[in-house]
Amino acid sequence: MDERPADAGRLIAARDIAAQRGGRLVLSGVTLAIGPGDLFILRGPNGAGKTTLLRTLAGLSQRAAGALKRSDNASVFLGHADGVKAALTARESLSFWRMIYSAPPAIIERAISRLNIFPFLDQRGASLSAGQRRRLALCRIVISRRPVWLLDEPTSGMDAVSIRAVVDLIAEHCRDDGAAVVATHEPLDFGPGRTIMLDEAA
């Protein structure tokens, strides 16, 4: 892990990274420095490597080449799967994640109100709709209090009101010196933010 001056103050710095999915190279030459306040929108056709890039930035997937520097507990990742247990109520899921991230109780209240979880707080995961499960999954991201949010299609299955709430939440997080990398096919309007286009696997 070499410290380069350009990466100082960065939460995650990726330099010329390449990554594989199922043994096939889907990404190469990606350089990305994520610091406080940064918002990146990741776009590209299916198979372009958006999820792979997010997993690599999260440290969940090994990169095939390049350098990746992450500060401790820099990021939290939300993939396609919601991580919502069918047999647990929304309330139980939230308090489990609060324990996992050692977060104060007040953070649950904030997550519940921002993502409008209250109407189904005592319902089990099995009875939630896809959009409701997605909102509950996003609560984990809020509860984590990690600076960099790595979100893969965060608004999938959501209605217009919820999408607006999620976009506002992400924008606000970035204004408060957080950062986010959001992979999406939706025309989400975050205001300021940089778009990264990923091409079909080279």
Binding site: A58, V76, F77, G83, R140
Partner: peptide, 8 residues
Amino acid sequence: GSLDALIE
């Protein structure tokens, strides 16, 4: 997907 979250 909760295993990813437990890993990180």
